[in-house]
Write a protein that binds this DNA or RNA. Structure first.
Lengths: 380, 380
DNA sequence: CAGGCATCGGGATACGGTTCCCGAGTCGAC
DNA sequence: GTCGACTCGGGAACCGTATCCCGATGCCTG
């Protein structure tokens, strides 16, 4: 019957031509009915087409549609590790907002491997994604800035766009959007909370030395120490990766070398969890003997015993904001407003301290403040 | 210079034709150089093309490539909630295995909404994905079986394939692959662990009544009670969603109504965390006063205090297995082996109890066994 | 030195949609 | 009754890449 060649082995996919033929109309008409064009189509034709579409269970070929210029916008989410709670929340924000706008989300895992990151960005460029969202802190290694700048430009060249979430913005005139949170202020507030509770000997575990977020958190803490006139003791600083083992090992070592600390300022909730385990293993109580604070406010923070006082970071919101920023940008770009505005945009969200039960005032000093809220500022 | 029309506003995307023109060769040659075809191409042409590709920063259009039949296989991961740790681990497994094989991963969130699930499956069908992986327990509502069967068939009709991970297999001759774990045996072993430690009054919190995984876990527990000759007391059974609040509320209520329980058999680690909070709020110690067990063995289990004795479920492995199953299937399908084998496949992975510190023998009965390993069986 | 074979380049076509543009039909108005 | 305007259907030209198939060259052999 049908004169379309039947390859035999492969599944004969139903095309728009099959529908047109069966409905006794032209391919153009079918396309107009299905693509929601506002071109006038008679009700007769319309209903006939719809009927055949149902009968044949026809589905549009998204690739062909994209090729013809009418594709679904897609956002690519590139992430170090899907199972890290903070990243998962950002991803949820991006994906949710994408869905809301009818966008699709592609996901790729980099596993901290620059090679793989490069390969993924390239792959996404081929896919013609509307945007590539890079999640998580950046390692300040070698040519990181140059590397990202290259990504940004090459994506820009094909009409895509780079978005950095939870990383510091790029320097210079690089076409990339950054969605950030006030990392340093959060750490400042958190350290301030401990200091105002009277703690002076504070074991500081910011995270890995090369990671941008850890650097920010350390800086914030140091600024707080300064503000309170407390000298910063390098002996109480221990750096390491954002994981439980680091928290455990650092506390364990500190208990031998500098056991006079009364509080632990951890760079993440996970690290705090490890620290807590080590303290308990040493027979110390939290917060009676030692206070602990975290950072991130992932669900774990409220599941620990005692519940963790920590810095809340609006991860999911960051994801949402990131997607909306790039979607809006895209829309205005369609209005030929290109080249008029700046290509770089930097959005900063606020953080705040969440007080739970892991901090107790040091006996010697009275408690002063309870919660500090850092400002939400949006630059440019 | 170039006679390709320049649209003016839009970014002029570099096509294979531009490369061909600039390199002074034909489009066919460029394609052959780039697509890794084994068609013989002289080194002169090859190097000239490569040079121009670098100069112009040309990237292949993946949509066009797909349309021409040479696209990158893509797997779609449909998930209730990205931030649920267990799901995240499955997703990691799928994504990792996909990457290893050079596949791409699309992700969509359903948020437990059947409408949205339907829309997503349809969308994925349009995308021509090689497989759609549905993650997480299934609600045994109305026409769930019919619904899934329809999904399976409609995907099969376009050469795609449905994979169910962590759900029970579909009945009848439905073209779908199921990757499951031995849910009931895990619960049986876990309950047996409590029973052999002497516990007789066990508060059972399997999860939501309609969810397939919760049903399996409850069945396993009941079988264990039977095996130990312990009558099952419905007064000690409380069902509810897999979240912290449920664990808290259930324990809280039980402490008022049936306070003689000595252990809590929770249907998930999250629920166990909630239960633990409630016990502690009531001044009870874990495990001195009440023992607790979880299910899933997500990272949280070892971060709680005390560390949770729980059932390990190989989530990440399930994801890997799922992808490999569908990838292998696809490969053999290419060898025209279609219609020969059965379309439904069911893979079952084993679970085992992980003993930590949240269970103590009841005083009245001696502890008998410590760890039970359930069998790993793979049917068909 | 002629013929045959292996090597390699290029034109044309297919993939499955969208959209431009033209033409046929209908209807109202003068 | 004729003409213009408006409605709506269809043929055909793209979108960017892969590949079939044919032809042109160069080399080896007899």
């Amino acid at each position: 019957m049908s004169q379309r060649k039947t390859t035999g082995d492969a599944v004969a996919r139903v095309t728009i031509r099959d529908v047109a033929e069966r409905a006794g109309v032209s391919v153009a008409s079918v396309s107009r009915v299905l693509s929601g064009s506002n071109y006038p189509v008679s009700d007769t034709v319309r209903s006939r087409v719809m009927q055949v579409v149902r009968d044949l269970d026809y589905v549009t070929n998204a690739h062909a549609r994209s090729l013809a210029g009418m594709g679904t916008p897609t956002v690519a989410i590139l992430i170090n590790n899907v199972t890290a709670a903070a990243f998962a929340h950002i991803a949820k924000g991006v994906e949710g907002a994408a869905t809301l706008r009818g966008w699709l989300s592609l996901v790729g895992t980099t596993g901290d491997d620059p090679e793989r990151e490069l390969a993924l960005v390239d792959l996404m460029r081929q896919q013609g994604v509307a945007a590539v969202v890079l999640l998580g802190g950046a390692y300040d290694h070698d040519g990181y800035q140059l590397r990202m700048a290259r990504f940004a430009r090459s994506l820009d060249a094909v009409g895509s766009h780079l978005v950095l979430v939870g990383r510091p913005p790029l320097q210079g005139d690089v076409p990339a959007t950054t969605v950030d949170y006030d990392n340093e202020s959060g750490a400042y507030a958190m350290a301030g909370h401990l200091l105002s509770a009277g703690h002076r000997r504070i074991l500081t575990l910011p995270g890995p030395a090369e990671l941008s977020t850890a650097q920010g958190r350390l800086n914030g803490a140091r600024r707080a120490f300064e503000a309170y006139g407390v000298p910063f003791d390098r002996g109480l600083l221990r750096q390491g990766p954002y994981d439980e083992a680091y928290g455990y090992a650092a506390v364990d070592a500190a208990l031998h070398e500098t056991p006079d600390f009364t509080a632990v300022l951890a760079g993440s909730d996970i690290v705090a969890a490890g620290a807590m385990q080590a303290l308990r293993a040493a027979g110390l109580r939290v917060p009676e003997d030692v206070s602990i604070t975290g950072y991130d406010d992932i669900p774990l923070a409220s599941q620990l015993t005692p519940q963790l006082t920590t810095v809340h970071v609006p991860y999911e919101e960051m994801g949402r904001v990131a997607l909306h920023a790039v979607a809006d940008r895209r829309k205005s770009a369609g209005a030929e407003a290109r080249r008029t505005g700046p290509n770089a945009e930097h959005l900063v969200l606020g953080t705040h301290v969440v007080v739970r039960n892991s901090v107790r005032s040091s006996k010697r000093y009275p408690r002063v403040t309870a919660s500090v809220r850092t400002a939400t500022k949006v630059s440019r």
